[in-house]
Design a protein around this nucleic acid. Structure first.
Lengths: 338, 338
DNA sequence: TTGAAAGCGCTAACAA
DNA sequence: TTGTTAGCGCTTTCAA
């Protein structure tokens, strides 16, 4: 056929379809989109033709015409990924499933704590219709960027800016609950070891920890709370410190921290839970497979991603969306706190 | 300014620039692209203007005009990701770094072993200029798809189809070397435990294992080679079997398998390396952090991703590219084989 | 060296 | 219900 030969790859365009059917491009467009009035039979005719001839509208051209890209952007924290932890990878699976249904694709990039450059490129290039941010910082440069460009976006995690749509687990309740449980098991001297407090999630978890303590009538011993630890060395020192201060249990802010603490304790041959109990405010395969298994809070990153994507698409469609969604959690009590 | 008000977001187009400078769009285009003759001063004038007024060419429009998307697609195996292993996440980091330099973005999707559907969508929608595939299968549906559409692509890993551009680590040499080393340490009865042989990488590793044995004059005992294991249960059974057949060392095809074997051995309180030595043909944080640390082969996924991306861009540019690139490896000898 | 005009493949306002 | 036309923002041929 003539039309099929126009393009190299046997790819046909809306014009080819229109020509072959002796109707206008507009009519074809309407048959496909369902927008505007169109005769039932012409509609049928078009639909059948494009099906038989395997016509696929070009989303790029479509996008140019109505200022859409049919892409969303997924931004992962580079440092977290570098540490091999699978949390955000699992979020992506959830995002991917929803996007597929919406006929959207996912453009993946990384966020660095000191600059927003990779996202700037994508945003100024107008390559996406919306963005999913993760693990936000206080005064997050990416949030600022997106607000300036008034591009739809949601955050996986929490932020202090309450005009931002946020999808998060209920860290306060979760951490409060785990802390309480440990207290009820008789642990009094609880140590908390964590990383950067610029990460909003760490602030939230700390609040939950404090809440748990106070609900159980335990006064927080600031010497046992070691936050903003930047590297392995600092974590090891903190571990030593809280141990010598008589900590009965060490709670780690997340799986990354817990991995380091665990390494330190093992090297020093300190028995868990005999000498000290160990728990983590976030779970990962690493902790589950450890011997002894580590008590931890567990979240569902895939669900988080899915809800975030759904919410983002609502915003893109112009629907009204509530400001903050809190998802559930599980407390996994394991051998490390027996 | 008038031009700035035309668009809602203060976004200016090539027409705005042309108008403001009293020249044609063509000239502006030439100044930017460097293609075609243009006066040095006009060029300067344009460049300065677009810099001062923060003009960014719209890549979507540009793409429509010259049939490009400025996107590449990254396809990860869904099952591997589901198992929380970080290998492909790390590849992505390498791909991302290179793409950034080329001003390309990465569209991420998943591959399922039974169908190619997510990639089909992306390919027929013509949303990318090239594809990076990973962990290919024998008779891989995605490879077939890409060949049919004659879309540029490279594979991270190996495939039997030698017209496909492949970036891989030298698994044969690596596995051969590790096997040899173990043999030289005096191990005779070596067991091999692995997953699906539809994965080309597993076939390659098996070959390396056999080569290592034969170079050391050891006859392969087929009863100690347990491949195509589908699930945890099968792996545990295989572990029991080879143990009762007197295996002195168990080699695992990859980190996922090794995790399972490790779990089994620990639950049964089988001492490593006292009762049996343990090694893995692929490393991961899980194995490094284990007590005892596990001897394993180590590759650099980020490098793999980077080289793959570079190669893909060469192909997209129409350059000639060699068929297969083999990258290096490290042998990490740890306590598990002492 | 520069510009006019057509075209990439689609949508949408307006007219018929 | 359908078609004409202009336009999305860029590139490229052809002519000046």
């Amino acid at each position: 056929m003539l039309s099929e030969e126009k393009n190299n790859q046997g790819i046909i365009t809306i014009s080819d379809v229109a020509e072959a059917l002796n109707i206008s491009k507009t009519t074809v467009s309407r048959a496909i989109s369902g927008k505007g009035r169109i005769g039932a039979q012409t509609r049928e005719r078009v639909l059948r033709y494009i099906d038989e001839h395997n016509y696929k509208p070009n989303p790029i051209a479509k996008g140019l015409a109505n200022s859409r890209t049919y892409n969303i952007c997924w931004v992962m924290p580079a440092d977290y990924v570098a540490s091999d932890l699978p949390f955000f990878q699992r979020c992506l699976v959830g995002i991917s499933e929803i996007s597929l249904k919406e006929d959207y694709d996912i453009l993946t990039t990384f966020a660095y704590s000191d600059n927003a450059s990779p996202l700037i490129r994508i945003v100024t290039n107008r390559k996406v219709d919306g963005v999913i941010l993760s693990r936000t910082l206080t005064n997050d440069p990416n949030i600022r960027l997106l607000k300036e460009h008034s591009l739809p976006f949601v955050v996986i995690g929490s932020t202090e800016e309450d005009d931002v749509v946020q999808i998060d687990n209920d860290h306060i309740r979760a951490c409060c609950e785990l802390t309480s449980i440990l207290a009820m098991k008789g642990v009094r001297r609880m140590a908390l070891i964590g990383g950067s407090m610029r990460h909003v999630v760490n602030q939230t978890r700390y609040k939950g920890f404090q809440k748990g303590l106070s609900e159980q009538g335990i006064r927080e011993d600031k010497r046992l709370v070691r936050l903003d630890l930047e590297d392995e060395k600092a974590i090891e020192r903190a571990t030593d410190d809280v141990l010598s201060l008589g900590a009965e249990c060490i709670i780690c802010m997340d799986d990354g921290i817990c991995r380091s603490v665990l390494g330190k304790l093992k090297r020093d041959e300190i028995d868990i839970p005999g000498r000290v109990k160990l728990a983590s405010f976030y779970n990962s395969m690493l902790l589950e497979n450890n011997q002894p298994a580590i008590t931890a809070l567990s979240y569902d990153p895939k669900e988080l991603g899915g809800v975030a994507a759904k919410t983002l698409f609502s915003i893109i469609r112009g629907e009204n969306v509530e400001g903050k969604v809190l998802l559930g959690y599980d407390v996994l009590l394991k051998a490390s706190t027996q």
